[in-house]
Design a binder for these strands. Structure first.
Lengths: 243, 243
DNA sequence: AGGTTTAATTGGTATAGACAACTAGTTCTT
DNA sequence: AAGAACTAGTTGTCTATACCAATTAAACCT
C-alpha cells in the first residue's frame, strides 16, 4: 500500500516527491487542494519529518506546491511550463496529445560501439552497446522510426521484455539511476528509402529528425536516440518560462 | 568578525546565504572557485552542518553555486539566460552559434486582424495589428523568413526604427512589460515559391516551420510569429532538465 | 454579543550525528 | 608497469528531536 520503499536505492525523499507529483498529474490532487501535514506523512510512512520536508521543498521549488505557515501545504495553480514534462518519453508525449501510443520492435542487439556512438555515450570504441530499433505508433499508425543506443556497461541486464515496457522505468526503478536532463536537436530532412518503407510514405517525403541525448546528474550519458518522425503527422511542441 | 549572528531574528541560513551571495557579487569568489566545505562553515560559525546545507541548497537553486558529490561546492559559471534567448531572439540564437545575425525588412504595416491572427492574439477580428515581414540573415546568407503579428492596442508606438533594433527591448524597457513565457511548435515542411525565392532555394526544398507565441505573466499574448527556416542551414537545439 | 486568552495544529528553523556515495590520491599487489 | 585495495575528504541521505512562528478555532471572560 505504501508507495515508499525504504530499502530501495532511490532516495526516500525522491520516491515521495515522484509519488505526489504523480497524484497531481493524475488529477487526484487538484490545484488548491491541501496536502496532509508533514507530520502525518512522516508517521504514516515511518520516516523522518525532515525527509518529508525535503520532498516538499523540492516540489515547492519546482512549482508544484506552495506552503503557508500555520495553514498547510497546497497544490499550486496550474503550472505553465508543463511543456517540459514527458518530453523524454514518446509514450507520454503521445498520451498528452490524446493518441494511443504503440511500439513495434524491429531489432534488439548487443553490438560494439562505432566511433560516433562511442563519442555520444562517452565510452570507448568497441565497448558493448545495446542497439534498439523500433517503429513508434500512434493510434496504430506509424509515427516514427527510432534507433536507440545505450551503453551496456552502464545499463546492465536490459532485455527485450524491458524494452517493450519502459526503459526509463527500468533505469530508475531497478537500477536506481535518475535521469537528470536531456538535450535535443531537431532538424528537417527527407526520408530515405528504409525510413519511407517503415513510415508508409514515399522516399523524399519530408521528415523530422530528432536526436536526443539523456544524462545523469553527473553528466554521464545514458542514451542516445535518433528518431525520424513523419512530418505530416508530427509537430514538436514546447513551452518555456523566462529565467 | 563572524558574519553570523545567532541571536538575530534573521534565520542563520539566510544570513549565510546573503553573505556568500555578497562575496560572489563583489568578486571575492569567482566562477569556478571552490567554496570551503560545509563542515568547515559549520565548525567555523558553530552552527549545524544541516543549516549550512540549507543555505547552500538555496544558492544552488538560485544558480549561484553547483555541487559535485565527493569534490566540493563551486561558484557557478555566468548563468547563460537560456530561458528565452534562444527561443525568442533570432539575434541571440545566431550569436550563440557563432554566426553574425542580420535583418532585411520586407514590409512593416498596420493592418486589421484576420480571424486566425485575432485568435492567436486574443483580440477581436479587425482590431489593428502590426505585421512585420523580415528576412533573417546569418553571415549575410538568408536563414529564415519571418512574419510577426503584434496587437497595436497592446504594443503602442511601434516604428520601423524600433523593429530594426529590438522589439523585445522596446516592450520591456520602454513599455515596462515583462515577457514571461513562450510556446513554440516546430514542424517540417516544404518551401512554397515565395519562401523559396527569399531563401534562395528551390520550391519543394525542406524547410522548418517554427511558430512562436509569447505571453505576459497574466497570459496576455504579446506576439505571434511564424518563421520559415532553411532546413539545410538550421538545426533547432534545446536542453531541458527533468524534475 | 463581542473581545481575549488558550490550546491545538501547521509549517519554519536548528541541532548532532550516522552512514552512503563519490573523488582523488596513495599504497600494495601482481 | 598496471591494476587493486585502501584512505582521507567531500557532498548526499536520513534519523530523532527540539523549539519557534503563524494560523485557527474553541473556551473563556466581560
Amino acid at each position: 500500500m505504501s508507495m515508499i520503499n525504504k530499502n530501495s536505492p532511490i532516495p526516500i525523499y525522491y520516491q515521495l516527491e515522484e509519488h505526489i507529483k504523480e497524484l497531481i498529474e493524475k488529477g487526484e490532487l487538484k490545484p488548491g487542494d491541501v496536502l496532509p501535514p508533514e507530520r502525518e506523512y512522516a508517521e504514516k510512512h515511518q520516516i523522518s519529518r525532515m525527509t518529508v520536508r525535503q520532498a516538499f521543498t523540492q516540489l515547492v521549488n519546482e512549482g508544484y506546491l506552495h506552503r503557508i505557515q500555520g495553514k498547510g501545504t497546497f497544490v499550486a495553480e496550474r503550472k505553465i511550463e508543463q511543456g517540459l514534462q514527458g518530453l523524454t518519453s514518446f509514450t507520454e508525449d503521445m498520451k498528452s496529445r490524446g493518441l494511443t501510443p504503440g511500439n513495434e520492435l524491429l531489432s534488439f542487439k548487443l553490438i560494439p560501439a562505432t566511433l560516433t556512438i562511442a563519442s555520444q555515450l562517452s565510452i570507448k570504441e568497441y565497448d558493448p552497446v545495446y542497439e534498439i530499433k523500433r517503429i513508434r505508433l500512434a493510434d496504430q499508425l506509424p509515427m516514427a522510426v527510432e534507433v536507440n543506443h545505450i551503453s551496456a556497461n552502464l545499463i546492465k541486464g536490459l532485455t527485450e521484455q524491458i524494452v517493450n515496457q519502459s526503459i526509463y522505468h527500468y533505469i530508475e526503478e531497478s537500477l536506481g539511476m535518475r535521469i537528470h536532463h536531456a538535450a535535443q536537436t531537431i532538424e528537417s530532412s527527407i526520408a530515405n528509402s528504409l525510413e519511407a518503407k517503415h513510415l508508409h510514405i514515399s522516399t523524399g517525403s519530408p521528415v523530422m529528425l530528432i536526436q536526443r541525448n539523456t544524462f545523469l546528474k553527473n553528466g554521464t550519458p545514458v542514451e542516445f536516440v535518433k528518431s525520424t518522425y513523419r512530418a505530416d503527422r508530427y509537430k514538436f511542441m514546447i513551452t518555456m518560462n523566462r529565467s
